[in-house]
Design a protein around this nucleic acid. Sequence first.
DNA 1: GCACTTTTTAGACCAAGTCTAAACATTGAG
DNA 2: CTCAATGTTTAGACTTGGTCTAAAAAGTGC
Lengths: 142, 142
Amino acid sequence: MALQAGGVSDDVARRLRERGIRPSVQRVAIARVALASHRHPSADEVWEQVKERLPMVSRATVYNTLNRLVEEGLLRSFASAQGHTVFDPNTAPHHHLVDDATGTIYDLPWEALAVDGVDALEGFEVRDFQVVLHGRPTRRSR
Amino acid sequence: MALQAGGVSDDVARRLRERGIRPSVQRVAIARVALASHRHPSADEVWEQVKERLPMVSRATVYNTLNRLVEEGLLRSFASAQGHTVFDPNTAPHHHLVDDATGTIYDLPWEALAVDGVDALEGFEVRDFQVVLHGRPTRRSR
DNA sequence: GCACTTTTTAGACCAAGTCTAAACATTGAG
DNA sequence: CTCAATGTTTAGACTTGGTCTAAAAAGTGC
Ligand SMILES: [Mn+2]
Ligand SMILES: [Mn+2]
Ligand SMILES: [Zn+2]
Ligand SMILES: [Zn+2]
């Protein structure tokens, strides 16, 4: 398949190439969805969205590509409260608030919370951390 | 089957009865393992340990009982970093440190860390929270 | 155009977890 | 004590998120 000329896709293709990932049509479509998401989608949710534009894309390609993007540092993945893997295009440190009623995961900026005592922990070498909160949004924004 | 006379089982049986859970032999055996664990075992890990004493116990009974213990507040459950459900007999607030190399989850006392800013969060109603750290133990204690 | 490499695909496979329906155990009314 | 009703356990079927496989398709370099 021929590459498109559009701006967004080119930008995504460039980011893939920078990491040594050949930007096939499928990979660009998957990366566009996953990297632009403001949610924390599962692989199957990404697959559903990608299929709207590229109906023949296979489930294996979506899983392989998302895992590759994680390896190359363009995405992070973690297990949701329900135990399913979700992908997070925000690779900078930040906190998470989980609405257990809906499963929605909200980002909180790193600066919104201060954690004290990590450096003083005895017996552990800490590589990174985050605060995980459970609750729900009040205003119907976000 | 007849109930045993031993002290630990009686204590577990009492805790089950208090919550309206009839203390069958299977449930007492499962609860003994899960409530005494200092690790954060999965259901299948509990099953393996229970089978040493009660070889005929079924997987369904282990899952049903553990879920019942969570409902009744004697256990908590959450998804591990690998996305598998684990059970935690420590129902008081505390933090968790995950060794990603081994999957081991360590408890940190609530007082070991201070989180500031939760009350000031705009747009969210927070029910509870904890700090999740990734790292590894230094000394070979614990 | 042709060999070679990389990627994608459909579907098999796997493992954690749930559900089902029958067997088994316990309870208590008579 | 008997036996019917109720509660519990069981084996195994089923579901689902995720991985693996082997063949087809696409891309690359000459
Ligand atoms: Mn799994
Ligand atoms: Mn699941
Ligand atoms: Zn996030
Ligand atoms: Zn714990």
